[in-house]
Design a protein around this nucleic acid. Structure first.
Lengths: 165, 165
DNA sequence: CACAATTCAATTGTGCACAACTAAGTAGTA
DNA sequence: TACTACTTAGTTGTGCACAATTGAATTGTG
């Protein structure tokens, strides 16, 4: 009976395929919801995350924002430029280390951050998701990410995760 | 004692924040791994998903590919053009309905699809993830996506999910 | 001190996701 | 049949993710 020799292993691999696709799909669906919720605030979700990080931590160098959000300068530089153009953040080259650029919220940015948090809170609350299940999901995602990071080299010193608000 | 009136509700909202960010992070980490695995095959992960859908279902109209992968023509048109330029797919306007464009794998595309599946299988297997946990995770992601779709309007008739290989 | 290696932000180029719109074909209906 | 709806791909424009490179500043070491 050589019919099912690698069936279990095959299923496993199929499953991992499913998970990667399901992950992307869920992420995009969530992003779509949050995009809608933030439209009125005139910012994108990645921009919101930056405002949130600055709200949480105060003035931060670009490098640190990148660690918190797992983004590099190729993504952050133009994003921060847009936020600065919108008058939400201010960038100043550090006096201690001229290579570094410190980013801080303007008054307008602080207000926008608060308003955006409120909008996303209302949006998330309306989903009526099960908190216990979300907690389990969050744990699984964390472990999965850690495992993936271990394989690929992964992220650099994320320190305190961003969204501890 | 008005100290903890909305604490539970607050925690819930924080958690949902966590989950959206964790989702994006895990998705990007997985994408990064698969990108590395596919580098040798000269295709990206979204391109791989198209090849996979065509391998599974045979010739498909662009519309159907979009339903399977939840992508619109703004994403698919240029992506398919790149695949066609690479000689992996062929596009032909349908005779029955001149609006529709049918996409099918070339011989080269079929080979590339097979090779890519092998590469991703090996990559996924090396992670050593727990199948039971993956199954649970997949179910949670599916339910979450369904819930999000219900709120935002969601996806259009995905039919058979793509990654049923 | 001089010089090599490293760090940090920015830039360039590619590809994906998505919104808005266009062009062309089809279907339904007065 | 003429005319309106709708459908299907494609195009344009914006923003994000990421690889690779550049330039300037700092650090480490001889």
């Amino acid at each position: 009976m050589p019919t099912q020799p690698t069936a279990t292993a095959e299923d496993l691999l199929r499953l991992e395929h499913h998970v990667c696709f399901a992950l992307q799909t869920a992420s995009r669906a969530f992003g779509s919801l949050y995009r809608d919720a933030l439209r009125e605030q005139q910012i994108t979700y990645p921009q919101y995350l930056v405002l949130l990080a600055l709200t949480e931590h105060g003035e931060l160098p670009v490098k640190r924002i990148g660690e918190l959000l797992r983004l590099d300068s190729g993504t952050l530089s133009p994003l921060l430029k847009r936020l600065e153009t919108a008058g939400l953040v201010q960038r100043t080259r550090s006096a201690q280390d001229e290579r570094s650029v410190d980013v801080k919220l303007t008054a307008k940015g602080a207000t926008r951050s608060t308003d955006s948090q409120r909008a996303l809170r209302a949006c998330a609350a309306s989903l009526g998701l099960d908190p216990a299940e979300l907690q389990v999901l969050q744990g699984m995602l964390q472990r999965l990410t850690d495992r993936l990071d271990a394989v690929t080299g992964g992220a650099v010193d994320p320190g305190t995760p961003v969204a501890d608000n």
